[in-house]
């Protein structure tokens, strides 16, 4: 291959593409338990993830970030919208291909104590996906489990132990070993480091970055801690009440953000430096209920830049200078 040919910029195909995804849960009420209203947990979200890329998904509790993650790994059937994995619509996959799709997309949960079966040994837990996907024989699987333990930094003797014998950080390593067992292409991390102490959290974050480099993994990294997300992500999407309000590179979200919600979220983070005097935009009130969201821009009751148009019209997610920075706001903020 000539030098010239390889230097032409080829945009890699997105690994995962989500288009206008909606997940509405019926709210059952009244004596007949009829559902007249819907909890619009995810209400029209689009994004894509390239191979080897990390997309951080940030928002406060109830913004729909976990629901979105669960839709992506096919745990929920979305109300409408499309999820494409390697160019194929996941909803249209024949049953025979579904298993292969599931192999390529795995999940790491917040609480490893709840997501690991406490009656199984660590060896059984890590081997289970290999058995389900009928990979290798018993001997090969045993070797693979030891290899995986080594990759995540756990001693080989862990195989015969039970999850309760491990600390929180080590349990999260077990969860990671299970998630990478099938050589997936995408891992959805749902608050994967939120329950860990700071000194352990940094160990796990380093491990995730290392694994990504080694296996060219993509991550959908869901968390509420913007400092952690900024550290691990290439791009970040900020969610508020079921919608994405801003997406940009991690650097732009930090230094060139445009959405008032992104700004207040960033300014609310306590900085570990006593000389830093916070210039804080304190939001009034709480996140409204997704069952009965405010009219127009759902952020308008808490927004310091609210104008008449914000109360009546829903802002579209539009491109700013390029498709790399997208914003859903009527008001143009000068940075």
């Amino acid at each position: 291959m000539s030098e010239f040919a390889s230097s032409t910029v080829v945009q890699p195909e997105p690994l995962l593409e989500v288009n206008d995804l909606k997940m509405h849960f019926p709210v059952k009420e009244g004596i007949l338990m009829k559902s007249k209203r819907y909890n619009k947990a995810v209400d029209g979200v689009s994004f894509s993830i390239k191979p080897g890329e990390t997309l951080g998904l940030v928002g406060e509790s109830g913004c729909g970030k976990s629901t979105l993650g669960r839709c992506v790994v096919d745990l929920y059937k979305p109300t409408s919208g499309q999820i494409k994995f390697e160019g194929q619509d996941v909803a249209l996959l024949p049953k025979s291909d579904k298993l292969a799709f599931r192999r390529n997309i795995q999940m790491i949960f917040q609480d490893p104590m709840e997501s690991l079966n406490s009656r199984h040994t660590v060896g059984d837990i890590i081997e289970e996906p290999l058995i389900i996907h009928k990979m290798g024989d018993a001997l090969w699987r045993k070797k693979r489990v030891l290899e995986l333990l080594d990759i995540v930094g756990l001693p080989a003797r862990s195989v015969t132990r039970y999850p309760f014998e491990f600390s929180g950080g080590q349990r999260q390593r077990i969860g990671i070993a299970r998630a990478i067992a099938l050589n997936p292409k995408l891992i959805v991390c749902d608050e994967a480091v939120s329950a860990l102490d700071v000194s352990i959290q940094s160990q796990i974050l380093n491990l995730l970055v290392e694994l990504q480099r080694e296996f060219n993994l993509s991550y959908l990294f869901i968390a509420h801690d913007l400092a952690v997300v900024k550290h691990i992500s290439d791009r970040i999407a900020i969610m508020y009440l079921g919608r994405v309000v801003e997406t940009a590179s991690a650097e732009t979200i930090y230094s060139g953000n445009k959405h008032p919600y992104t700004r207040s979220l960033l300014s609310a983070i306590p900085i570990p430096d006593p000389h830093h005097k916070p210039d804080r935009i304190v939001l009034q009130g709480d996140v409204p209920s997704p069952i009965n969201p405010p009219s127009g821009c759902t952020f308008h009751p808490r927004c310091g830049h609210c104008e008449a148009v914000c109360r009546s019209e829903v802002p579209r997610l539009r491109n700013l200078e390029s498709a790399a920075h997208r914003l859903s706001c009527h008001v143009d903020l000068i940075s």
């Binding site: 990390t54 600390s167 950080g169 080590q170 102490d197 700071v198 000194s199 352990i200 959290q201 940094s202 160990q203 974050l205 380093n206 970055v209 913007l226 400092a227 952690v228 900024k230 550290h231 691990i232 992500s233 290439d234 991690a250 650097e251 930090y254 960033l266 983070i269 900085i271 570990p272």
Partner: peptide, 25 residues
């Protein structure tokens, strides 16, 4: 020092290796 060094900071470069305290409590 270990604690202060191991927290990811907003102004540190993305995906840099964080300092860690080896082992656990």
């Amino acid at each position: 020092r270990g604690l202060l060094n191991s927290i990811p900071r907003l102004d540190s470069p993305s995906k840099s290796v964080l300092n860690t305290i080896e082992g656990m409590v």
